[in-house]
């Protein structure tokens, strides 16, 4: 790890003031579960690390039926899991968080950090840059891309979004609140995740001197929701594919649906194809299967990750069935 200077400001305003205006100068430290390792691997070599440890106001998890759920960016995964209101009103978020199979990561890791963690692409983590280039050529298309994207992978980004929470949050139309030098702004979480076009960009709509402060999730009474992850290991591991599903039901049939895929594209990947296959239908094994097939229909697998197409389809099918079975 390269040396850096450290600051732990007491206010959000101070924190923003300590941040640099271009990527690479400063990094924001929350739980540290991604950043510290990334600094050891010299994936990032900030001159300054700004710790948010004193910003207790960013740690709350609050719910009201009128304004919905507000998750402070510094709330830990445990705090999310432990919230009775989240358990009662957002079972899909609980399922999403349950995919983080480490009590240590749940205790240390924050919701904000979970959304902002950098990709796990092994070329990126080995030092070939966010876009995994070597001798001017992308490594992923001809390389070992077994864990890479099957959607949104026409280049130059091939990694998959690592977030476990984002797909379900996007299903629930969550918004991210950011605080920067010119105040706060709100962005739809579905637009917060972006595919970088150069190695110096990030995977999020955030500026180097902005801080993610809060996630706001509308209340969705009566919506059925579920997450299904296809994971090789029960222990801590990255899913091979995941699907988050939210179903608005009208009687036995789906009036409106949201399907967002995880770990299959450089961003959480909404599937209008799957939604269309569900809307207006009664949920059955057949419609779930059809939604799964529709979700996978436009996949463009790389040389070694064709199997993820099938896994995506199964994840959607099973998430749909679980959502229909489970309550809101």
């Amino acid at each position: 790890m390269q040396a850096f200077e450290y600051a732990a400001p007491k206010t959000l305003h101070e924190a923003v003031g300590l941040l640099g205006s271009s990527w690479g100068e400063t990094e924001i430290l929350a739980g540290g579960t991604d950043l510290v390792s990334a600094m050891k691997d010299q994936i990032t070599t900030p001159k300054r690390v700004v710790s948010l440890k004193h910003l207790a106001e960013l740690r709350r998890v609050e719910f009201s039926p009128s304004s919905g759920l507000r998750i402070g960016a510094l709330a830990t995964i445990h705090e999310l899991l432990d919230s009775k209101e989240v358990q009662e009103n957002y079972p899909g978020l609980i399922q999403a968080a349950d995919g983080i199979r480490s009590e240590q990561l749940r205790a240390m890791g924050t919701v904000g950090g979970e959304l902002l963690q950098r990709p796990r692409c092994w070329y990126y983590r080995s030092g070939f840059g966010l876009l995994a280039e070597y001798k001017g050529k992308p490594l992923v298309p001809d390389g070992d891309n077994r864990y890479h994207a099957i959607f949104g992978n026409s280049g130059p980004a091939y990694f998959v979004s690592p977030s476990s929470l984002a797909p379900m949050l996007i299903c629930l139309q969550a918004k991210a609140r950011l605080h920067g030098p010119s105040g706060s702004r709100e962005v739809e979480l579905s637009k917060f995740f972006v595919t970088p076009t150069s190695a110096n960009e990030r995977e999020h709509d955030i500026k180097p001197n902005e801080i993610l402060t809060e996630i706001v999730v509308p209340h969705h009474p009566g919506v059925h929701m579920a997450v299904y992850e296809v994971r090789q290991k029960e222990a801590l591991d990255w899913p091979l594919a995941a699907a988050a599903v939210a179903l608005h039901m009208s009687g036995n049939s789906v009036s409106k649906s949201a399907v967002v895929l995880g770990h299959v594209a450089p961003v959480p990947w909404p599937s209008p194809e799957a939604e269309e296959a569900l809307n207006g239908k009664e949920v059955s094994e057949e419609t779930a299967e059809a939604a799964g097939k529709a979700a996978a229909s436009k996949a463009t697998p790389l040389s070694k990750n064709g199997y993820k197409v099938q896994l995506t389809s199964v994840a959607v099918k099973r998430a749909v069935l679980a959502a229909a079975k489970g309550g809101a």
Binding site: P9, K10, E14, L19, S21, T26, K47, N209
Partner: peptide
Amino acid sequence: VGKAAQAPASS
């Protein structure tokens, strides 16, 4: 840290 970061003196 270059030009942009203007830390308040108290930090």
